[in-house]
């Protein structure tokens, strides 16, 4: 089954860029990525730029409206994702727990809705 691991954390909780902690944090991400590949579960994964760069788009009455900022203003913000193909939820949980941000924020694991099959 394919699972989306959505990576959430509050502003200012991740190590600052350039600090020694930053290096360890990135190394842990590299380590997680390596495990995902070795286990054959990795399908996709990206980090996103800060929510201050976000634009929200909606179409109302045929007209495109844009708004500065993310869809929902919450303390914990979506910072990236992995798409993982796992045997079952247990494996997905095991993989999500390897994502370093799990230690400071929250990883939401959601199964992908599969059509047909």
């Amino acid at each position: 089954m394919r699972y989306m691991a959505l990576i959430y954390s509050a502003d200012g909780t991740s190590p600052e860029y350039g600090s020694p902690e930053w290096g360890a944090f990135m190394a842990a991400y590299a380590e997680a990525g390596k495990t995902f590949n070795e286990r054959g579960v990795f399908r996709a994964g990206e980090a996103l730029q800060h929510t201050s760069t976000a634009t929200s788009v909606r179409v109302r009455g045929g007209k495109t409206e844009t708004m500065d900022g993310p869809f929902a203003e919450t303390k914990e913000r979506l910072g990236g994702f992995y798409l993982l193909d796992c045997r079952d939820l247990d494996e997905a949980i095991e993989m999500a727990a390897l994502i370093p941000t799990a230690e400071i924020g929250t990883i939401e694991v959601r199964p992908v809705l599969e059509f047909g099959g």
């Binding site: 089954m1 699972y3 796992c86 045997r87 079952d88 939820l89 247990d90 997905a92 095991e94 199964p111």
Partner: peptide, 14 residues
Amino acid sequence: GAAGIPYAVPSRDQ
């Protein structure tokens, strides 16, 4: 069913 919770006895490490 939907989230793929396994119908299984957990592995030794879990």
